[in-house]
Design a protein around this nucleic acid. Structure first.
Length: 462
RNA sequence: GUCCCGUUCGUCUAGAGGCCUAGGACACCGGGUUUUCAUCCCGGCAACAGGGGUUCGACUCCCCUACGGGAUGCCA
């Protein structure tokens, strides 16, 4: 049995895309569960659109997710020689020919075909012309005209294509540079790739690539075409309908593990289990069980998954993850008297780290803005607040239990409703009516801070 | 247009001819806990695209239609 080798082959024409992450993940997991290798190959043959910046973004993000390739990634842009050699081999074997059709001519041809209701495709007009190489000729593969190619797909089974549906694709451009199909096939062979796991949008490329393999005498590969990740408009996820780059999700405060989890569950499931970590995926994932239909990426499921992954973190881990998000708000996470108590009581307040950070802001900084509606509803005049301040000021033993008892006594004695007592204090402390239990919230601040905040609200009321 | 792939609750999915009165999760709605918010717990709503076969029996198998997506580049 040959060692399984998978690869993720992005072209660096944009930041690491969430759909790309899923492709990489499935490649990684499949390699791991077969004790094989996971490779990354940068397909930067399009010199116009490829940038080093994007390449670095892809590589860095991949490794931050833990999808680390087992070998140093290679760049196709540095391997022209190998591809050209392969192209020459195909030419020598008689399976390729030079074609001098201009862009205009080809466009005209396609228009005519379309007008006749035919599939626009190169008609092979230069095939038997015996042209030789020039700066105006491209090298085309002589695709078999009859018969069919069968793609054996791990997810979809056999897919058949008639050879007469396939036109003679370009191997070498007129400037001599190799094209995607050639490079892709050659590198899969050169890197001993055994299994190609990629997006469904490549299905129709597969028979063409198989023809190149055949012309080169390469062994056949295993294929798995993944359903596409879709936006809510049912079209492939694009900037038009959602955040597409991994970076954007990280910046919003989604955990790597949660992102991976939600991507894995898109198109695949295992019983009733929803929460997965990478090691569990490696144990339980089955490529054959992947769904065939495209799947809409639902942010609310990610939100929930994120909350699950967040709650599975220890307090220390959680604080580490939160730290940079607070820093973005100019907050030093340790700059609070009761950091651990505060963070622990607030960690379920929102689903994302950025959301939690925002919710934490009033605990670290003075209240900039009070919820005026809440003030209107719960604070008729400041006299009660003044009264409560005195009450709290008299507490010597400043802890949650004592505070709660004092407030309860006051509330019962004066026959007041709980909100009538609690909400004014809460608004003083955090600016709104949202906070953990009041005794807990008060004890998170020290007595002086708490009284100060009450004073601030009193003076705000004027 | 042509070729290819697909189609179960709003969304992700379970379902390999009787186990389906179609299960779970998210979302949503209602209730409980917290007399705030969030968490948590309980409950509810909600789907086999349509039509033909095959079969004693079809979500499951076959065909057609419809719809959706992908591909049709000297992009990858």
């Amino acid at each position: 049995m040959k060692k399984v080798i998978t690869r993720f082959a992005p072209s660096p024409t944009g930041k690491l895309h969430i759909g790309g992450v899923r492709t990489a993940l499935f490649n990684f997991v499949y390699a791991r569960q077969n004790n094989g290798k996971f490779l990354v190959r940068i397909e930067d043959t399009d010199k116009e659109r490829s940038t080093k910046e994007f390449e670095n973004n892809i590589l860095e993000n991949l490794s931050s997710l833990g999808l680390v390739p087992d070998e140093e990634p290679i760049n196709q842009s540095e391997r022209d020689e190998i591809y050209i050699k392969a192209a020459e081999k195909i030419l020598e074997s008689g399976n390729a020919y030079w074609c001098d059709c201009s862009a205009d001519e080809l466009e005209k041809m396609r228009k005519e075909q379309t007008a006749l209701g035919k599939k626009p495709m190169y008609d092979g007009r230069s095939r038997n012309l015996g042209l030789s190489r020039s700066d105006k000729t491209v090298l085309r593969l002589a695709t078999p005209e009859n018969g069919e190619v069968i793609v054996n797909d791990l997810i979809r089974g056999e897919i058949r294509f008639n050879n007469n549906e396939l036109d003679d694709l370009i191997l070498l451009r007129s400037n001599g540079s190799p094209t995607y199909h050639l490079c892709n096939v050659v590198d899969d062979y050169e890197q001993s790739v055994t299994t190609v796991i990629r997006g469904e949008d490549h299905i129709s490329n597969t028979p063409r690539q198989i023809h190149i393999q055949n012309a080169l005498g390469y062994p056949s590969l295993e294929y798995a075409h993944l359903p596409l990740v879709l936006g809510t408009d049912k079209k492939r996820l694009s900037k038009r309908n959602a955040a597409t780059s991994l970076e954007e999700y990280k910046e919003k405060g989604y955990l790597d593990t949660a992102i991976l989890n939600s991507l894995a569950r898109l198109g695949w499931s295992q019983g009733d289990k929803e929460v997965f970590y990478l090691d569990e995926l490696i144990k339980e994932f089955k490529l054959e069980d992947v769904q065939k239909a495209g799947a809409i990426f639902d942010i609310s499921k990610l939100d929930w998954l994120n909350s699950q992954h967040l709650s599975n973190l220890t307090l220390d881990e959680f604080k580490q993850k939160l730290k940079p998000f607070l820093k973005n708000l100019n907050i030093d996470i340790e700059a609070h008297l009761n950091v651990d108590k505060l963070i622990e009581s607030m960690r379920t307040s929102e689903n994302t780290l950025s959301g939690i950070s925002a919710a934490l802001e009033p605990y670290y900084k003075d209240i900039k803005m009070y919820d005026e509606k809440a003030i209107e509803k719960f604070i008729k005049d400041k006299s009660r607040l003044v009264e409560l301040r005195t009450l709290l000021n008299d507490i010597d033993n400043w802890n949650q239990e004592t505070i709660e008892n004092v407030l309860k006594d006051f509330q019962v004695k004066n026959e007041l409703s709980v909100p009538a007592v609690n909400q004014p204090i809460r608004i003083s402390l955090v600016g709104s009516t949202k906070s953990p239990g009041l005794g807990l919230t008060l004890s998170i601040f020290d007595k002086n801070q708490a009284l100060k905040r009450i004073d601030n609200l009193i003076s705000h009321l004027g």
